[in-house]
Design a protein around this nucleic acid. Structure first.
Lengths: 232, 232
DNA sequence: AATGACGTTATGTATAGACATAATACTCCC
DNA sequence: GGGAGTATTATGTCTATACATAACGTCATT
């Protein structure tokens, strides 16, 4: 009941964050209960709850019923990056996006990738290969298979002007997926990216699933110089 | 007021998610207001608010005062990865973590990296070079500079048994930072990683800041075969 | 026609009170 | 002493109500 000013859950959030960062609440320490904090800061318990919940979601606090709330000993924070349209990604980097279809055919999906996506050998797929450009220069090579069981419309879709990436974002009811970044030699994509086959490049393997079914598997091979930037 | 069962914000969240995924609420559509939904689902407006707020944070809905809530046209979802102790990262991969200090000295920080971290040429730093092992094999090479202005205790810290990574996680009041993954040839780190200098490897440049001051800059060079795995 | 004031409206947030739930701490009984 | 059952307690959540705030539309004024 000492402080009068900081009402609002953000104010409570900031005040708690300050106490954590200044070690007024040291790592591992049990902090006052919601009721006490609400009384001290002059707000309702629900307000304190909202603030502390956000901090817990950020990994700075650990909350357990009955046991109370304590400051995380070794905070394992989450880094985030936004997954968006490749064209948008290129625009964000201040370049003019371009797109060129290389092939849209029925090249069979390799068994290893069928397994990664979780579809059987009989599920029909469509194969799309394309190149995305930034200011006219190769930006990323896209090599994709789409499950026609999940997206029958993909069989007749025209990928010459709209990339499969964007088409799927617009049409597929995607719910979750996995990303797998690795470093590799450019290999077969080298000719499209305008570099040597031995040049180290970033490779992204992505599997995407709808609420019920696997949708697509794609390998994106980025041109040399690509950086994956994230914030914590 | 038709449905009786789904009380609880998670139920409302799931129901809204279902309507988005089934395109009962198609992309771009304006969905019913909180008041209406609360009446329909038989719960309080605050409960609907909580559910829709979560979906908005996940990037599936866009909410604006007065304008209402609409389904995101092209959802740009966020991928998450957890940043943790390197030892923990190795354990997660099912291996026994190991650590070997290579050097702890006063090697000056290169100007480019001083700039990336945002500290002037007069700020004293400490340099630490180390190798992290997984089941005895090289896992990642760590090359780090710590600002002694932010962390004076780092000047006398012993990094022979505890890595600088872990020491900082325990002692530095870190608030935010940037991650920058790229693919590169192993180069100077090759000898430590047991590979050729030309081998493509993943490189992570990380700058870490406290609430007020820059703390540390580190380059982690991962051994060949490393994959960065994320979920959406 | 452009501009500015204002009312309307949907979301954002705060509150007090209540009940639910999980987990610890304790007690009782064997 | 050990195990089962129970009381206690801190967080989790829901409700109803209220007010705050942003933004769109409208209407009047210049």
């Amino acid at each position: 009941m000492s402080r009068a000013a900081p009402t609002g859950w953000q104010a409570v959030h900031d005040e708690a964050l300050r106490r954590i960062q200044t070690r007024e609440w040291p790592p591992g320490a049990l902090i006052p209960g919601e009721e006490d904090l609400a009384a001290e800061l002059g707000c309702a318990r629900a307000t304190v709850n909202r603030a502390l919940r956000e901090l817990a979601e950020a990994g700075l606090l650990e909350r357990r019923r009955k046991a109370g709330t304590r400051v995380t000993e070794v905070p394992s924070r989450r880094a985030q990056m936004s997954i968006s349209r490749i064209a948008e990604e290129i625009e964000t980097r201040g370049a003019r996006p371009g797109y060129a279809l290389i092939a849209a055919d029925d090249t069979p999906m390799p068994p290893a990738r069928r397994h990664a996506l979780g579809i059987g050998p009989d599920t029909p797929t469509r194969h799309v290969e394309a190149l995305h450009l930034a200011d006219g220069a190769p930006y990323v090579h896209e090599n994709r298979w789409i499950s026609l069981a999940a997206m029958p419309a993909a069989a007749s879709a025209d990928f010459t002007t709209m990339s499969a990436n964007e088409w799927l974002l617009r049409h597929a009811p995607f719910s979750h997926g996995t990303l797998d970044y690795s470093a590799a030699a450019a290999g077969e994509a080298a000719s499209h990216l305008g570099c040597d086959a031995q040049t180290p490049v970033m490779v992204l393997d992505r599997a995407t699933f709808g609420p019920e079914t696997p949708i697509t598997w794609v390998r994106l091979t980025y041109a040399p110089g690509f950086h994956l930037h994230m914030k914590i």
